Simulated assay, not measured.
Amino acid sequence: MISHLRLNTTKTLSEQVSLQVDSKGFEFIIINHPKFDAAFTLHGAHLIHFQVKQQAPLIYLSKTALFDDKKAIRGGVPVCWPWFGNTEESLSKKLPGHGFARTSKWAVSIIDETSDAIDLEFTLSANEVTKAIWDHDFTLTLKASLSDHVELSLITQNTGTDTFKYGGALHSYLCVADITQCTIDGLASTYSDSLDEGKQKNAEKTLPIDGPIDSIYAINEGDVIVNDANNERKIIVTNTGNDSVVVWNPWIKGAIAFADMPDDGYQTMMCIESAITSKQGVLVESGQSHTLKTVIK
């Protein structure tokens, strides 16, 4: 999934983790574990690849994704924070959609490896650049636990004196064999259809994917299950700390419109996002924290 990137190792961080760069110096954290392979970028603390040995990849990455310091990466698990989509305030101030976390440079703070798993922590703290966009003091930590599955925990800590509100998502792109042969179970019974002016609608018990979808489902009580028929597997997604689950696939017209996705890229991806999308967001008081989490297996 990432062999086309042609990376060179610049630093060994542990026995199974290295810092690598492409020809432009863009930085990647590459994990070669006996049981799985994975990759992050320091740009956005962005998981771009995860694959258990001898299995199909779990995470989708666009073959034409752009890697630079300005744009979000198409695919993987972008960290949308401290807001989801475009808010009225962000639009009025011409601020970046989905916030700034996914286009900020993070630091690796912890690497802990065993024979079964690797745990990593990435951190981003308030600085002059973030305060010019969102004037709050914070420390954002992405804890990643990788084994035979992916567990991502986004911890928002308020290090300032005032309460702040935030929204966002772990915008997970799942890799599937053929989207037309996939169905989804476990979603809530109602959703807001972003392709139809946000109208509230009743959901099907089992959702087939046969066209573009951009829907915000009410929070579900159990797992969301993607039936990836042509890979003969079920992808199970468990979310906590969220107020909704976003289901998204741009379909052919959407894929064609993206410069960083092949025209047929929509055929092998499905987004199931652990999200905070309500206008109320999550209030985090001074000295307190909140965790948004997704487990994919």
Rank of each mutant, 00 (worst) to 15 (best):
S3I: 07
S3M: 07
L7F: 12
N8T: 14
T12Y: 00
S14N: 07
Q16F: 13
V21R: 08
G25A: 11
E27G: 01
I29A: 01
I31L: 15
N32R: 14
D37H: 02
F40S: 13
T41D: 15
T41R: 13
H46D: 13
L47G: 07
L47F: 06
I48D: 11
F50L: 04
F50K: 06
A56I: 05
L58G: 12
Y60D: 11
S62V: 02
S62H: 06
T64I: 03
A72H: 12
I73T: 11
I73G: 06
G75T: 01
G75I: 03
V77R: 07
P78T: 05
V79W: 00
W81N: 04
F84W: 08
G85S: 04
N86K: 08
T87D: 13
E89M: 05
S90Y: 02
K94D: 06
P96D: 04
P96E: 07
G97Y: 02
H98C: 02
H98Y: 13
T103G: 01
T103P: 04
S104V: 10
A107S: 11
V108P: 07
I111L: 06
D112W: 10
D112Y: 12
S115N: 00
A117I: 03
I118D: 04
L120R: 03
E121W: 10
T123P: 07
L124G: 04
A126K: 08
E128L: 14
E128H: 07
T130R: 08
D135A: 15
H136E: 05
D137S: 15
S145R: 12
S145E: 13
L146Q: 11
L146E: 10
S147C: 00
S147Q: 12
H149K: 13
H149D: 02
E151S: 03
L152E: 01
L152P: 00
S153D: 07
L154N: 03
I155D: 02
Q157D: 06
T161F: 03
T163G: 05
K165H: 15
Y166L: 10
A169K: 01
L170Y: 03
C175L: 14
C175Y: 15
D178W: 09
D178P: 03
I179S: 11
Q181H: 12
T183L: 08
A188T: 12
S194E: 09
D196Q: 12
E197D: 14
N202Q: 08
K205R: 12
T206W: 13
L207M: 12
L207K: 09
P208G: 07
P212R: 13
I213Y: 04
D214V: 10
I216E: 10
I219A: 09
V224C: 11
I225D: 05
I225A: 01
N227W: 13
A229Y: 12
N230G: 03
N231L: 03
R233D: 00
I235F: 03
I235G: 00
N242Q: 14
V245K: 12
W248K: 04
W251N: 02
W251S: 12
I252D: 09
K253T: 13
K253C: 06
F258M: 15
F258P: 04
A259P: 00
D260K: 14
D264W: 14
G265H: 12
Y266A: 11
Q267T: 15
T268K: 04
C271I: 00
I272C: 03
S274R: 06
S274Q: 08
A275Y: 02
V284D: 07
E285R: 04
Q288G: 06
L292W: 08
K293P: 05
K293S: 14
